[in-house]
Each structure stands twice: as C-alpha cells, then as structure tokens.
Design a protein around this nucleic acid. Sequence first.
DNA 1: CCGCTCATGTAACTGGTTACATGATTTA
DNA 2: TAAATCATGTAACCAGTTACATGAGCGG
Lengths: 189, 189
Amino acid sequence: MASGRTLTELEGCVLGLVWSKGPSTAYAVRRELQRSASPHWSGSAGAIYPLIGRLARRGLIRSGARATGRRRSRVYAVTPAGLAALRGWLGPPFPDVVVGPPPDPLRTRLYFLEALPAPLRRRFLAEAEERVRGQLARLEEGADWDGGEGPWTVLADRGALRAMAGRLAWLEEVRRALERAPADASGDG
Amino acid sequence: MASGRTLTELEGCVLGLVWSKGPSTAYAVRRELQRSASPHWSGSAGAIYPLIGRLARRGLIRSGARATGRRRSRVYAVTPAGLAALRGWLGPPFPDVVVGPPPDPLRTRLYFLEALPAPLRRRFLAEAEERVRGQLARLEEGADWDGGEGPWTVLADRGALRAMAGRLAWLEEVRRALERAPADASGDG
DNA sequence: CCGCTCATGTAACTGGTTACATGATTTA
DNA sequence: TAAATCATGTAACCAGTTACATGAGCGG
C-alpha cells in the first residue's frame, strides 16, 4: 500500500485540513487557506478543485454527497490510505527542503540592498520594520483571542509569531549596523 | 520607462546576482544558487537559461561574448533598465507576500501533528530539532569563516541564522508543551 | 429584486521541476 | 586517456496563478 507518489506542500496541507476539520467541502478548505496568516497560498479555486480531484482519484479522500438543503456540495473525508499518506508526508524523516532555512523574501532582497541608493536603503529598512511590526501585532492579537483552536494550532501559530519577532530583531540589527557604518558605496555601481 | 511587468523572486534574485557579482555567465549564477544556504531553489539549468533569456529579451541584461579561451560562453551584465527594474523589485513598497509570515514547512506540518500517534510525534520533534541544530551549526561555521563576502551578505546571512535559531527555540517550546501535557488524543481520529 | 455569500468548476498561462543531450577544457 | 568540471541548452511535465463562468440560497 505504499501510496505511490509523495505529496506537494499544498496537497499535504489540504489533506491535513480535511483530516483535522473533519469532512469538508472544497470551498471550506479554500476559505481556510485564504484566511490563514501566511499569504503564501492564494487558496484560489483553480488550485483547490483540481487538487481535490487528484487526491480523490488517488483514493486519499472520498466524497459523500451532502443533503443540507438542495444546494449541491460535495463533502470529502480522509480515507485510511489518505491518513497513511498524510503521516508519510508529515515525516520524519525530513527532506532537506523541510528542515533547511525557509525562504524569506526580505532576506533575499537584503543580499542586494547595496543596489539601492543610501536614502532608499534607510526607507527600505524603515518600511520593512513597520510592516513586520504590524503583522506581528496582528498575530499577537490572534494569539490572545484563542478562538477554541486546539493546542496544535496554537503551538504552530507560536512558530509564526516567533519567526516574525526574530525577523524584526534582525531588521533592527541590520539598521544598527548601517547606522554605525553610514558612508559607503552609494549603489550606483 | 516603467519596465513593464514585475519580476518573480527568482528573476529578481538572478538579476541581483548578476548585478552584485559583476558580468557573469548563466552557469556562474546557477552555481551560486546551488551552493546557497537555502535549499529552496534548485538552480537547475531548465530554470536559469530560459530565465536569463527572458531578462535579456526584456533588455534588463545584455550579453557580450567572452574570449577567454575558445570555449563558448556568454557573459551577461545588468543594463541601466535592469538596475531600475532591480530597484523596483527590491522595494519599498512591499507587497504582503514579502512582509507577511514566510512559509515554513515544519510549521505547516505542526498544524497537523495530531495525525501522528504520540510516539511518532516525539520522534518528529526530536529529529526536527536535531536537523535544525545541524543546519544552524553549518550557518555559524560559515559566519565565522567570513570569506570576504561583503557586509550585505554577512547581514543577510545573519537573518538566516536568526531564523534557524528562532525555529529551534520554537521546537523546544513545542516539546516542553507536549511533555507537560503528555496524554491526549492518540491521533487515530 | 439586488447583492452577498456559498459552491463548483474551467481555460489559458507561466514559472518552475527533472531528465536528457552535447561538447570544450582541465586535471588526475 | 579517463573523469571531472565548465558551459549551454532543450523537452516533457506539473502545480499553481489569474480570470472567467455558472448557479443556488439568503438577507436587506
């Protein structure tokens, strides 16, 4: 029963959502992805519906028609094979891409910050700090609220919060370093 | 001169590399991406060569044939329009996806950790901690070495280091939380 | 009745992936 | 001379994007 291919991040995530929320419609999964803290996935229809179809064809989820009203809607549930696949995706063992340094668009940009003239560099850091601070505030707010989410969600969200706090501390470190060494190349190379 | 479309992360990154390293071959860019700390980009030929072609067609880089030996090789340099595009990509202003919580495969998985039976959960955390610790050691080693990389690279790498350190602290927090509340659902829902 | 949310899907595109193919140059 | 590295590229594929299209049910 070695469930064939592995799952992509989004496939694993959707499978996990259907498992954790219980039988769900594709639409509910979409909404969940859209409201999630990370803007990384769009949760677009064009992503979810074909993905759900793939999982169903592979026997990892199964649909039973719902009769709430006469409105058509398919409710999917995770099959035993699906739970096995989910567990396999969760790991361990982990491929490098899971444990290695996760990508950070701000960090990627910082490698090339020298390409900006010095005043813009300062604005870069100022706006980045401000925006990250805003995001952080939203996360802390959500953490206070604690809408009966269960311990796993709370713990995972703690990870997002820590990531953002670390990022902010890093940005401050960068800004201090730049203030100490103000006059270098202007970026017009 | 509004340089048309925006750049993808990889396009911006490659443009930045060509700018920062000076005139480079596509191969050199590839190698740089492959050796970079983050395993996020493969730096495969199938990604880089078409991408370089796109940038050249858009006038953001320009190739001058090199004559080092008779080995064929194209050396690309960033044009003024390319520098403008690079600066636009760097921002500010930043779209949400740049400043929002960056994706973290470990965090994504933790949302669904309940799906693993309790012993596997502990193994998940143990192996994750160990692997992240290993990555962290590599990064610290590289930071000591400091191979004449310039201040920007050093500062950006500090971000990766902080991200990994924060992740590790978070994993430890999760483990402590689980140890305090050992006996809950077994994950066979 | 108008507009919003629920709900499902398709079409066209695009930016990556792996795998393959070729050949020059260097080094052991 | 054999193997590794430098160097460029193509082909097939795939998962996710935006945008579009359709329609039921409900609240003001």
